[in-house]
Design a protein around this nucleic acid. Structure first.
Length: 587
DNA sequence: TGCGGCTATTG
DNA sequence: CACAATAGCCGCAG
């Protein structure tokens, strides 16, 4: 059905019974317009009749549905057009949750949702062959023949490759296919037999939306302050390549003057090792923690460690980094991925996730604003208590510092208890932690068995599923021609990976549920999340709303934990502070 | 030119 | 120096 604009679309959707939170599939193309599908109807608004962004915005404001789309590309397009919607169902994100790993295109998402054999799905851009085949299907005569789906059930290569954007009615048909795929995904989530999986699928979807916003909004950074910090370490900005080379040489000389007559490239670990050998220091490698203990042996060690710090700033977090990532509007922007790596953590580029502590002084709220900074306390052991159902560990979570009761249970000091608990979650098998591990097994048998099961699965190359339903692939890979020792070493590494993925992955699920809850509840106060850091949120808020946002952020943790682990008696804790700059956070 | 190793930063 | 990540430079193979 062709419509003229947003109000008419709202009317049609309302007549179809669409209410707040109901699925409305969406396909947007700036040139062609908007296609929607919901409750058995297909609607299209040509771009010639109404601005696509305004149509989506109108429907959002009046109906606030759960938007269903193929992948985060739609989220990125909406955010770029200035449209912020509340919630979505991201087929690609849910596909990664259900099936693990890699980023995939609609052809694969569709095939997996429908349970079709993947080897028959179209791959890559269409070639002469698949174009002819799709045309042949279109001419087949039956009513739906010119839709996006082939007779064998797979999507047509020409549609996957962008054919959906050719005309308004195609946008609507593409949206209808997305809606059908979403329904099949929900069925698959139900089959997982994990009541929380559907809620996780929703928050993982909305986390994709949050990532699109984080990438667009950026992190407020005071350029002058950043340049002051950098200048204090590496000096003023070089005006030419020659000047930069001279600065480098000057830094190098500060180290080399301690070893006269030696020609050494300090950037080469091998040469640094020979340098140290020349002054009587023999080391297996030259990492800082190892050199730290040798500071007194020779003055060159101290100089080298200082050189390394400056070199880090000069190469990775120097003026070049500012120029590449800090916009004229004082926002530091990187790319965000909502579920990456081993277990579905968020990742970010541009140094957003590994900014050296010194530079946090340059992260300053804009005039009239504050940061509400919140971090989850001891999130991994608490998550372990929740997902494993260990009653004793859950009881320890009642205190703000869970390592205190754990230490009492084990009969060791707090530091030892902490190292042992972390060691259990990471798979440490040597040192002091390993000895205390046996006491941990006695005190918290359910939690430790949960970890051991992850370890076993990893060693066997068996995939695991996190508490929230994310499949973590642990396939053994190609290990022919490995000697016994190397094969054992790799199996042990996979064991640690599998053990940790269950905890880290579950923590990432809870974190994202918290983050999207904060996103929703803080928006009416004019506040926006500007940084997500695994267990920490930085929210940029109007100064007069700081305390209220802080209250909301804390309340959101209870709300998210209640949704993620209903009925659990595990207590989650959060530390919330209102600050003007990130470095003002007290430890 | 691509990739593994080394190193540093963060949670 | 366990688990995860990004990022830069060096040295070596192709």
């Amino acid at each position: 059905m062709l419509l003229a604009g947003g109000p008419q679309a709202v009317e049609e959707l309302r007549r179809a019974g669409v209410r707040r939170g109901a699925p409305v599939a969406l396909a947007v193309d700036a040139a062609a317009g908007v296609g929607m599908a919901a409750a058995g109807r297909r609607l299209a608004v040509p771009a010639a009749d109404a601005d696509p962004a305004s149509v989506v915005d109108e429907v959002e404001r009046v109906l606030r549905p759960r938007w269903v789309w193929w992948d985060a590309g739609t989220a990125v397009r909406l955010v770029a057009a200035g449209v912020r919607v509340a919630t979505c169902w991201d087929l690609a994100a849910v596909d990664r949750l259900l099936h693990g790993g890699w980023r995939v295109d609609p052809a694969v998402v569709w095939a997996r949702a429908q349970g079709l054999p993947l080897d028959a799905a179209p791959t890559g851009p269409p070639d002469l062959w698949s174009v002819a085949a799709d045309l042949d299907e279109d001419g087949g005569g039956d009513g739906a023949a010119d839709g996006p789906v082939r007779r064998d059930g797979h999507l047509k290569a020409t549609w996957v490759d962008g054919g959906w954007a050719a005309a308004p009615d195609r946008l609507a048909a593409w949206a209808a296919a997305a809606l059908a795929a979403a329904e099949r995904q929900q069925e698959r989530l139900r089959q997982l037999d994990r009541p929380v999986a559907a809620a996780v699928a929703r928050s993982e979807s909305t986390a994709e939306l949050l990532c699109a916003e984080l990438a667009a909004d950026g992190l407020p950074v005071d350029r002058a302050e950043a340049e002051r910090i950098i200048a204090a370490v590496v000096g003023p900005r070089a005006r030419s390549e020659a000047e930069a080379a001279a600065q480098r040489a000057r830094r190098d000389a500060e180290v080399l003057r301690h070893v006269p007559g030696l020609e050494v490239d300090l950037r080469s670990p091998g040469q640094v090792r020979s340098l140290l050998r020349r002054v009587g220091i023999e080391v297996a490698d030259t990492r800082a923690w190892r050199l730290e203990a040798l500071r007194d042996r020779h003055p060159v060690v101290e100089a080298l460690l200082a050189w390394r710090k400056a070199e880090r700033v000069a190469t990775t977090y120097g003026y070049g980094w500012l120029d590449r990532h800090l916009g004229a509007d004082g926002r530091l922007r990187g790319e965000w991925t909502a579920s990456d790596g081993a277990a579905g953590r968020m990742t970010a580029t541009a140094g957003l996730h590994n900014l050296p502590a010194e530079l946090r002084g340059a992260v300053v709220a804009e005039p009239g604003h504050v940061f509400v900074r919140a971090d989850l306390g001891q999130i991994e052991p608490r998550v372990l208590a929740a997902v494993s159902g260990d009653r004793a560990l859950a009881a320890a979570c009642a205190t703000d510092d869970l390592y205190a009761p754990v230490a009492r249970s084990l009969g060791v000091d707090r530091e030892t208890a902490k190292v042992a608990m972390l060691g259990a979650m990471y798979g440490q098998t040597t040192g002091r932690g390993a000895q205390v591990l046996r006491r941990l097994e006695a005190a918290y048998p359910v939690a430790m068995a949960y970890l051991a099961a992850g370890d076993e699965a990893g060693r066997m190359g068996r995939d695991v599923r996190t508490y929230g339903g994310r499949l973590v692939r642990l396939g053994a890979g190609d290990e022919r021609r490995l000697d016994e020792r190397e094969a054992r070493r790799r199996a042990a590494a996979r064991g640690r990976y599998g053990r940790n993925a269950l905890v880290q992955g579950a923590a990432a699920e809870l974190f994202k549920m918290w983050a999207v809850t904060v996103r929703a509840r803080a928006a009416p106060l004019g506040a926006r999340i500007v940084l997500c850091l695994h267990d920490e949120l930085l929210v940029h808020a109007p100064a007069d709303q700081g305390d209220e946002v802080a209250r909301v952020v804390a309340a959101c943790l209870d709300e998210a934990a209640g949704r993620w682990a209903p009925g659990t008696d595990v207590r989650f804790v959060v530390d919330v502070q209102v600050v003007r700059r990130w470095s003002d956070v007290r430890g």
